[in-house]
Design a protein around this nucleic acid. Structure first.
Lengths: 228, 228
DNA sequence: TAAAAAAGTTAGCTATGACTAACAAATTAA
DNA sequence: TTAATTTGTTAGTCATAGCTAACTTTTTTA
């Protein structure tokens, strides 16, 4: 009821904040997200975040006490999930139909996710035959907002000798994604950890008959499923 | 040069004004377009238009003297044509691939036309195999901004006994487009003017073995090619 | 041609959503 | 447990882009 009415009144900025909060709180499973952390994630000033949070509280998308941590209401979560759905469906469309590479899609999808049309996104979903994963391996919520929240195991969390399969990658940086492709890694690649150097936590890994040494920062952005 | 740099700095509003000016000046071929006319077309106040025109003049997209009529520079036209290209390609995509009807596409295309990505629109064009007309029969500019400007002959400009073919329709009103479909008219329909009533300029027309009486306002929004 | 109407302009207001600078509260560390 | 650091808040500014009301210029018409 109020639901439907509000959704067309929401601004692009409000959507961006709600999505960011959802990704920190729920997808990254961070228990205490504060004002400044959200500000840093969105690359805006703490003051901007503070005033937006006030607005989102007044619209009942966010709950928090003064100086307390931030929480999303069910309504807030619902808005965020729908944005994530749109973002990932568009990424999938761009990669699978419009010859985009996985490092090119994020920026355009950031724009496309704000297009307001229920029909558009549901038809796009149907057109692609209801994909469940985007080009980076992330799960795509269905039309009811349901999707599996895979526990995020980073490559960096594994030990020497462990073997795993590449499940998804952080899509935040174009340079990172290009680098992943360049060295020959792809979704589902089987990776073995040959050695971890204590000094800088860099890792020597083996995959597809190749070997590479990657930094800790790199390994933090690669999500894997350990093979038991 | 300056071209490319500016195009990413342009706002949605600036784009809307340039497109509106182009449609009035070039597509509708109106020789003198003034501030208030543009304001009315865009459904904003004359004051808003006035200040936006100042901005567009400073960016050299528009030329006009104080109290004089408005003109577009080549740069201004180029921006407008690209918007029209994007708008019509998206409309075509929505109709041909996502099950939208021709009365549903305009509103969504108004949003999609502001997405900034050269690659997106050119790939979409390729994906659809370079269509030349949108669902309303309007010409789609190619990647170089070239397209045929069909002289707009309205159904209302014809005489009793004339025969013509439906070329395109004004896509501004959802109700109008629904009405056109409902009575059974479609692009390329052959229409014969049976009678024009002087009193209110309403027309009795025949097409596809059907007859209808349509108002002057209706006939003003239907564009045709007379059959000699 | 002078008055009325229309068209165009300006000033000043509003809301959104950024920002910086200054300050307050909470947390961490000495 | 006090001091330092981090985190959060507030006040005040800026740009964009809309608005109304008042005014000026241009055009029309009586």
């Amino acid at each position: 009821m109020t639901n439907k009415l509000n959704l067309n009144n929401i601004t692009k900025s409000e959507e961006d904040y709600l999505k960011a909060l959802f990704q920190l709180l729920i997808e990254d499973d961070i228990s205490k997200v504060g004002n400044n952390q959200l500000a840093e994630y969105l690359k805006v000033s703490p003051a901007s975040t503070n005033s937006m949070i006030k607005k989102l509280k007044s619209k009942q998308y966010v709950i928090s006490e003064k100086y307390g941590k931030l929480e999303l209401t069910e309504e807030g979560k619902w808005i965020a999930v729908r944005l994530i759905r749109k973002h990932r469906l568009w990424e999938t469309f761009l990669c699978n139909y419009l010859n985009f590479t996985w490092d090119e899609v994020h920026e355009v999808a950031e724009q496309l996710e704000h297009i307001k049309s229920q029909k558009l996104i549901n038809e796009l979903d149907r057109f692609m035959d209801y994909p469940t994963r985007d080009p980076h391996g992330e799960m795509i919520p269905n039309a009811d907002g349901e999707y599996a929240l895979l526990p995020k195991v980073t490559l960096s969390s594994l030990q020497e000798g462990d073997v795993c399969q590449l499940v998804s990658v952080n899509d935040g940086s174009v340079n990172f994604l290009r680098y992943v492709s360049e060295i020959g890694l792809a979704l589902s690649s089987e990776i073995k950890i040959i050695e971890i150097r204590e000094f800088d936590k860099s890792m020597k890994i083996a995959f597809n008959e190749a070997q590479e040494t990657v930094t800790r920062k790199f390994a933090d952005n690669v999500f894997v499923k350990p093979i038991t």
